[in-house]
Amino acid sequence: MDLGLTGKIAVVTGASNGIGRATARLLAQEGAHVVMMARRPDVLEQARADVATTGSVETMAVDVCDSAAYTAALEDIATRHGRIDILVNNAGAGQFGPIEALGDDAFAEAFRLNVFAPFASMRTVFPIMERQGGGAIVNVTSIMGARAQALSSSYASSKAALNHLNAVAAVEGAPKGIRVNTLQVGSIATEGTQAYREQYPELAAKVTGAIPMGRWGKPEEIAAGIAFLVSAPASFVAGAVLAVDGALGVQFPY
């Protein structure tokens, strides 16, 4: 199937590893020019060297929690390339631990990264995409934003907020030709979740046992879902929540 991404300008955040890197690679393979964003220039350059073997890419070292810097980077991309067709807000994180041990700063930091950054980016690209006749945005959320799990208060709360922000953005964007969709990930084996699995091995083992498919997902499987949502064949898909979780989120809680 031709995804219709040839020549598109795509921005992917959190692109130095995991889901973001896999998404950048797939979009580049499908013919898009991908702007890979992440905070750490050295790791980002390693990712660029890898992804560049599959297609056209560039990098920008940006902390998306810095709204001014993130906004300026998006405006620069639109100026240099004349457009932004695809935006994938993949960067996300949160501290895990019991509520009584979580400080105000840690709780707020999850919202700065998981909610405020996507909000600032959509505020910036909506006018850009409207002028060019449309675009596609995917904001990556988590099953933890829809289901409660102990020790995840900051991360889960921020992802739940992002879920509803996405819904509002989809309704506002649709008349402008801007398709906003949500990719809801389950338990994915990435560099980021490795620390969680090592810190809480018993809980991680329970998660694995609870997944009907019997394993954690792969970053490439999430990338495939994102690629579909931004593709031409998904031209009437807006406001959708695509869960890629091995049926974890829909099973009966025995």
Rank of each mutant, 00 (worst) to 15 (best):
P98M: 08
A150W: 09
Q149F: 15
E58Q: 11
G177I: 04
S142M: 10
R48N: 11
G20L: 01
L3K: 05
S187W: 12
V244I: 12
K218V: 00
Q251V: 11
A146S: 15
T182F: 09
V180I: 14
V140E: 00
G133E: 07
A243T: 07
L74C: 09
F228N: 07
L248H: 15
T182D: 15
A174N: 09
N166D: 14
Q251N: 11
V62A: 07
P212Y: 00
V140L: 14
V241A: 15
R21W: 00
A160Q: 07
V62T: 11
G145Y: 02
A169M: 14
V171Y: 14
A73M: 05
A204K: 05
I77R: 07
R25T: 10
G177Y: 11
D105S: 12
Q29H: 06
P175N: 09
G7N: 10
R39K: 11
Y196K: 01
A238Q: 12
V51F: 08
E75T: 05
A195K: 08
L242R: 09
T182E: 14
V62H: 03
P201R: 05
N166T: 14
R179Y: 11
H164E: 11
S67E: 09
T71E: 13
T59V: 13
A204V: 02
E172S: 13
F228D: 07
Y155D: 02
S187R: 03
Y70C: 09
D104C: 04
W216C: 00
R80L: 05
L242W: 10
